[in-house]
Design a binder for these strands. Sequence first.
DNA 1: TTGATATTTAGATAATTATCTAAATTCAGC
DNA 2: GCTGAATTTAGATAATTATCTAAATATCAA
Lengths: 92, 92
Amino acid sequence: MKLNQTFKALADPTRRKILDLLKDKDLTAGEIADQFQMTKPSISHHLNLLKQAELVRDERAGQHIYYSLNTTVFQDLIKWSLQFYEEEERKK
Amino acid sequence: MKLNQTFKALADPTRRKILDLLKDKDLTAGEIADQFQMTKPSISHHLNLLKQAELVRDERAGQHIYYSLNTTVFQDLIKWSLQFYEEEERKK
DNA sequence: TTGATATTTAGATAATTATCTAAATTCAGC
DNA sequence: GCTGAATTTAGATAATTATCTAAATATCAA
């Protein structure tokens, strides 16, 4: 996992909302774009950043491209965060 | 916790290295700056962003200002991440 | 109060990023 | 192969961010 890419991807409200939408179910690029007041190319750009950060996966189904969550990076994020949180315990 | 501020603060390698340094022990602004090839004002800027994101606290001690980790935001980050990771379980 | 040290603030510049419009690509159905 | 729909790519522009130098502030020690 490239932490920098991960955090950069997460540091944008549009992209975090996309992740939230994908929690419920997989969606096509178009269905995702419909949820925002932003052009499709802009959403495509955000999806690409999420994909590069391995936060989502994409899979073509005919004319549509379905996006889905890839939860492994969230696991890594939890591990990374724990090293700081656990530190508090050690110091006590 | 303001997620956006948190992720923006974490989306920079210099700032993440500062957090790593503070895991071991509290450090003054100067001691932190010594670990980087960057001017003190630049490090001060990064410290300020970390402080605004409540990832660190500062406390003056005479001429020095000590910085320390504030682990509560890391806890929040873990909770936030879990909502995505746990989703995988639900779908199975 | 003066001089030295630690740190931050101000202001400028360069690099990065988000967004748009227009054009290109990919696929389905005829 | 052509047409239409879904999506991405390219290229431009505006906003944001990282970094620097110079100046300001705060504290200590004499």
